[in-house]
Design a protein around this nucleic acid. Structure first.
Length: 875
RNA sequence: GGGAGCUUAGCUCAGUUGGUUUAGAGCACCUGCCUUACAAGCAGGGGGUCACUAGUUCGAAUCUAGUAGUUCCCACCA
């Protein structure tokens, strides 16, 4: 068979993915096996794959594939999220391009456009995941707005309302002037800004003096309804009981006193704008102040302001500063750093706004969600996030769940003609309730459904429950089988948005955790440490990367340096390393496939020892790998396998068993090699599914259905450490010979002799054949006296020599030995220092002391040998 | 302003309850090789006062305190 010297991912990846689909390997149905379930963190339905998804989904696929190969019934449920704000914004934009405003066409018509958009752009991301090799159960693909999920959301809303956990009220909320909706606290991102602190002159009524107020937002003076000072502030004593005149506006406002005001800040005078600042709002409530809303919903100035009407807030700030200055009412301007809240989605500055919203009480939910994490029923990897989680839950505020949007789950509250409302899952039930409540003969037309829809996270938080229909139909077989799920893989940035709330929902509705372990990935950053983002343009296109390096190559690149919770500075070189690794294995396959096997020849000694050793070495790494994977140390696990394949299998094992050029290989060795190769492919498959499946099939002819993806992981056995240690010793010998060859310019083609000083016959000779083969050694001679005219080296306390015909550079040899001696003596000294310390000998555990004694005797033996050699050379 | 984490080789990181040589890996780097599986490769090599300071201990990269730098989270100082 002709195999190209370069592995070509394009030729294999699509083929095997289709094969797996055809065989329905990804699909899961409940059976007697232990389930292993992961629900995907649903990406935005109209989103495209970015590097964060790549990392996240590679990890999930590794875990799912491994579980499948451990005999578990693996089920990875994919799906998408309707992403209320983001999607609605996109649809609004598209309509705007056609000159259409959403209010002109109405809710139903708008939703048609939104669904069109969803169908046009939706699901691309799921298609992209197939390129990555994601083994999702596609038959289970769900959407947060599909029928089951929508009904679940509405059921939960009604249930929480009936439990008294949902209420409606006027509160100061975070208003997004671009999306024209309220946001939850979690959706606001605070950024430090270099801004200005403006000192404004408020004339004291009836006097010719001024009170100076420092503010970062001069444009809000039209909404001022009081000035506040600290009653204990001596420098503003004279203002008590007075009124001051709002500059430009001319309105007289009272001076109130409250200890909330920081005496040290600015002048100690605070302008109070109850409609536009959370703290001012609280003051307004406390002192019964008037509240003037000077902004429209889009943050332009409203009629109520009386000035600058219709202008944008930013423009007004610039203008009003000029006007204040012109009127002599601007005392001074200082540079100032403050924090401004921005909308997570639209990136515009948030405006605190008083409005009627729906809220979910969090006290009870926080309590039930805290317990399983603190008690260890749910484990976080890394565990440092437990603190963060606890802190958030212990300081939680009620969740604003209503959004002034149409794309989402419409709140099932129905307003009655005479005021008040009822909450019900359907309009029919609402009508029934309404009639009961009012005692009047109402019709459907009398009811007006709440126009707000719910926060997207109000559907995501049910995801592990609703995917298996556990809200509507909690007794169903699938739900009982798959819930709770096993692992959740997500970013720490949505620990509050999503993780905590899923735990709340799971505990509230199932009295059980939604997942047992949470693996928090790092944030993918560029080489400069910046978060990858569309706006910075520093994120590579994952599909282009896959085209360039192959899915396996990219997966390796993602996994190699992604310990849980650490940021991942992404570098394409990592994918290149992955691609090179593919090629390495590919060429190992070429070698094995190129062998001629002769069943009549006996197994050579070298091959016999190689097989004996590799069996143990494989077992050793298998144990380490399993251990690492159980602890979610995926990069360590992969690196272990990487070295096992590259170094142990390719560089050592294959070189040992290789038949001389043109000669055939024996059957025993060949079969062992194929089995080893298969086992390597098994443990590597979760990380690199495509090339391993391909090699699996190229290694030998297989029956239909004998596919690697469903093969079982190799069994663990007890490791024979003696063989491993002997081989380590042998490797040391070989490396030393190679080093001498390199140093002395002895070509590999030139065979050499090896002399071993073995005074008492204790040197192990089992691997001599290996040494001879790998170092082109013609003979290994055992002697009892240190020879002369030879390059020597030491392994532990055993002396080895390579005799030379040329004159030996005695000076160089002496120098080398003296360096070795100095090191050994230094080492011995440190060991002796320990051992001569009575406190150490008495205080340290016996095993530790024994180890030190062994070190001492080894070092002494070595020193003795070196000294003898030096003596010989110096003769 | 409060809290948490981090600081080990040029880069990214391991280092499990303090004690398997005087600290490891991958990549990068340097030297020599197109050796008949692989130059996307082979063989060899160099490189670190474990941020700093003080302490605990027979013994500290590891524990404690402080200092510096850095990252993140939370918070109503205009």
């Amino acid at each position: 068979m002709e195999i190209s010297s370069k592995y070509s991912p394009q030729d294999t990846e699509g083929k095997w993915y289709q094969h797996w689909l055809d065989k329905n390997y990804f699909h899961s149905t409940p059976d007697e096996r232990e389930p292993y379930t992961i629900v995907i963190p649903p990406p935005n339905v109209t989103g495209v794959l970015h590097m964060g998804h790549m990392l996240n989904n590679t990890i999930q696929d590794v875990l799912v594939r491994r579980a499948r190969m451990q005999g578990k019934n693996a089920c990875w449920v994919p799906g998408t999220d309707h992403a209320s704000i983001a999607t609605e914004a996109k649809v609004v934009n598209r309509l705007a391009q056609q000159g259409i405003k959403k209010t002109d066409i109405g809710r139903d018509e708008f939703l048609k456009h939104a669904w069109d958009w969803t169908h046009e752009h939706g699901g691309i991301i799921l298609k992209q995941l197939r390129r990555l090799g994601a083994s999702c159960d596609w038959e289970r693909t769900s959407f947060t707005m599909d029928e089951t999920r929508s009904k679940s959301v509405i059921r939960v809303f009604c249930d929480l309302y009936n439990k008294g956990l949902i209420y409606r009220g006027v509160r100061m909320v975070n208003w997004d002037p671009a999306a024209l909706t309220a946001l939850s606290d979690e959706e606001v991102i605070y950024k430090e800004e270099h801004s200005k602190l403006f000192y404004l002159r408020y004339k004291v009524e009836g006097e010719d003096t001024y009170a100076i107020v420092a503010t970062t937002r001069p444009e809000t003076i039209m909404g001022d309804t009081a000035m506040c000072i600290n009653p204990n502030d001596p420098k503003n004593e004279h203002l008590k009981g007075k009124k001051v005149i709002v500059p430009l506006v001319g309105r007289a406002i009272p001076v109130i006193e409250d200890e909330y005001v920081d005496i040290e800040f600015g002048t100690g005078c605070l302008k109070v704008t109850p409609a536009h600042d959370v703290n001012d709002y609280m003051l307004g409530e406390k002192y019964n102040l008037q509240s003037i809303n000077i902004f429209n919903d889009d943050a332009t100035i409203s009629e109520a302001a009386g000035m600058y009407v219709g202008m944008d807030r930013d423009a007004v700030r610039k203008q009003i500063v000029k006007d204040l200055d012109a009127a002599g009412l601007l005392e001074k301007v200082e540079d100032y750093n403050n924090k401004v809240g921005y909308s997570e989605r639209t990136h515009v500055a948030i405006e605190p706004k008083l409005s009627m919203q729906w809220f979910l009480k969090m006290e009870h939910l926080a309590e039930i969600a805290l317990k399983p994490v603190l008690e260890g029923d749910i484990q976080f990897y890394p565990s440092k996030y437990v603190n963060l989680y606890r802190h958030w839950l212990e300081n939680i505020k009620d969740w604003c769940i209503s959004r002034q949007l149409w794309w989402g789950h419409q709140i099932p509250a129905y307003y009655l003609p005479e005021g008040g409302y009822v909450v019900a899952e359907t309009a029919e039930e609402a009508l029934k309730l309404a009639i009961e409540k009012t005692g009047k003969e109402l019709t459907m037309a009398d009811l007006q459904q709440e126009s707000d829809c719910l926060d997207t996270w109000f559907s995501s938080w049910l995801w592990p429950l609703s995917l298996f229909d556990g809200i509507l139909n909690p007794d169903n077989e699938e739900f009982k089988y798959y819930y709770p799920t096993n692992d959740l893989i997500t970013g720490p940035d949505i620990i509050f948005f999503w993780v905590a709330r899923m735990i709340m929902a799971g505990e509230e509705y199932q009295k059980e955790v939604p997942f047992k372990k949470v693996y928090f990935t790092g944030i993918v950053r560029d080489k400069l440490g910046r978060k990858m983002s569309k706006s910075l343009g520093n994120s590579p296109d994952p599909i282009e990367l896959i085209d360039k390096y192959g899915a396996d190559g990219v997966r390796v690149g993602m996994m190699l340096t992604a310990p849980a919770g650490n940021d991942l500075p992404f570098d394409e070189a990592l994918c290149e390393q992955g691609r090179n690794f593919c090629n390495k294995m590919w060429n190992a396959l070429r070698l094995v496939k190129g062998w001629n096997v002769d069943e009549n020849i006996a197994q050579p000694e070298t091959a016999k020892m190689a097989v004996k050793w590799f069996e143990e070495r494989f077992q050793q790494v298998l144990q380490e790998t399993n251990d690492n994977l159980d602890k979610y140390r995926l990069s360590d696990a992969l690196m272990g396998i990487y070295k096992l394949v590259w170094d142990d299998f390719c560089s050592w094992y294959l070189e040992m068993v290789k038949a001389p050029m043109g000669q055939p290989l024996d059957t025993v060795t060949y079969n062992a090699t194929v089995t080893f190769f298969e086992n390597l492919m098994k443990i590597l498959h979760p990380f690199m599914p495509f090339i391993t499946e391909d090699i699996w099939h190229l290694l030998k002819d297989r029956n239909d259905g004998d596919d690697l993806i469903i093969a079982q992981q190799p069994a663990q056995k007890v490791v024979d450490n003696d063989i491993l240690n002997q081989f380590l010793f042998t490797q040391d010998v070989i490396n030393n010979i190679r080093k001498i060859r390199a140093e002395k310019n002895i070509s590999m083609k030139e065979s050499i002799e090896l002399i071993v000083v073995d005074k008492d016959g204790s040197v192990n000779k089992e691997f001599d054949a290996v040494i001879m083969k790998l170092c082109n050694v013609s003979s290994v001679n055992y002697v009892t006296e240190t020879p002369q005219d030879a390059f020597g080296f030491l392994v532990k306390a055993t002396e080895y020599f390579i005799p030379v015909t040329d004159n030996i550079d005695t000076e160089a040899e002496i120098k080398k030995l003296e360096e070795e001696l100095a090191y050994a003596q230094g080492f011995l000294k440190s060991v002796e220092a320990k051992l001569s310390n009575e406190k150490f000998v008495n205080g340290a555990p016996a095993a530790v002391v024994d180890k030190e004694r062994k070190k001492k005797s080894d070092a002494e033996a070595k020193i003795k040998v070196i000294e003898q050699q030096l003596a010989t050379l110096k003769k």
